[in-house]
Amino acid sequence: MRISTLLLFFLSFSAFAQYEYEPSKDYPFGRPNPEAPQQITDFSAMIGECDCKSSTRNQDGSWSEEIDMIWRWKYILNGTAVQDETLKADGGHSGSIRQFVADSSRWYVHWFSSKTPSTTLPTWEGNKKEDKIVLYREQKAPNGMEGFFRLTFYDMSESGYKWIGEWVDKSESVVFPTWKINCTRKKK
């Protein structure tokens, strides 16, 4: 009887350790796993929930009216990756899975959207550079010029953060912003 009780305790503790860094009652947005690469904390300023305003560029070059949005972030895969989701007032929801791959020393971000379901997810890659996180995905401009769609998180703090999506040429000397989001912390 004693051995079975001890075995049950050990199995319960072992199962808990497998999920120790997942979102829970005590940690609703999970926690970074100390066994993960140190870069797992690059997105720590975003973990939690923010109220945001999102605006995209119109065809005429002006900016659209801002859309209210909730941007929610959490640690997943037992604290070894980051997931985010956006809930927009216009019904255009999206999300990403973010994994840091130590072999390439880069973040890989796989994006999905309710408005544009896809059989393969577009992927951005990049790193934290000083006080910004910068990610790139190859994309031609409408005129056929080679370049990237660049995503940048900046002004990251406990009170919120900003995000901008821009088309840039290969040298990054031509920069055309197409989407911007400003976020204010709601929950951590």
Rank of each mutant, 00 (worst) to 15 (best):
M1A: 13
M1Y: 11
R2G: 14
R2V: 08
I3C: 02
I3A: 09
T5G: 14
L7E: 12
L7D: 09
F9C: 15
S12P: 08
S12V: 14
S14V: 13
F16R: 05
A17W: 06
Q18G: 11
Y19M: 09
Y19N: 14
S24E: 07
S24Q: 07
K25A: 13
K25V: 14
K25Q: 12
Y27S: 08
P32K: 02
P37M: 04
P37T: 09
P37Y: 02
Q38K: 13
Q39I: 05
Q39H: 05
I40K: 01
I40C: 01
I40G: 00
S44F: 04
A45F: 06
M46L: 15
E49P: 00
E49W: 00
C50T: 13
D51V: 08
D51R: 12
C52Q: 01
K53G: 02
K53M: 06
S55W: 06
S55K: 11
R57I: 10
D60E: 06
S62Q: 14
W63Y: 10
W63E: 07
W63G: 03
E65W: 07
E66T: 02
I67L: 11
D68R: 10
W71H: 10
R72W: 02
K74A: 13
K74E: 15
K74C: 12
Y75G: 05
I76A: 04
N78R: 08
V82E: 00
E85F: 03
T86E: 02
L87T: 12
L87V: 14
A89V: 03
D90Q: 06
G91V: 08
H93Q: 05
H93S: 13
G95E: 07
Q99E: 15
A102D: 15
D103C: 03
D103T: 11
R106E: 13
R106K: 15
Y108E: 14
V109N: 04
W111H: 09
S114H: 10
P117G: 14
P117Y: 13
S118T: 13
T120E: 15
T123Y: 00
W124S: 00
E125K: 04
E125M: 05
N127M: 03
N127K: 04
K128T: 11
K129W: 06
K129M: 10
E130W: 02
E130A: 08
D131A: 06
I133G: 02
V134G: 01
Q139L: 11
K140D: 12
P142F: 07
P142M: 09
N143Q: 05
M145P: 01
M145G: 02
E146I: 04
F148Q: 01
F148G: 01
T152E: 12
F153G: 00
M156P: 00
E158Y: 09
S159K: 15
G160I: 07
E166A: 11
E166D: 11
E172Y: 01
S173C: 05
S173T: 15
V174H: 04
V174Q: 12
F176I: 15
W179I: 08
K180S: 13
I181M: 09
I181A: 01
I181V: 15
I181K: 00
C183H: 04
R185W: 03
R185D: 04
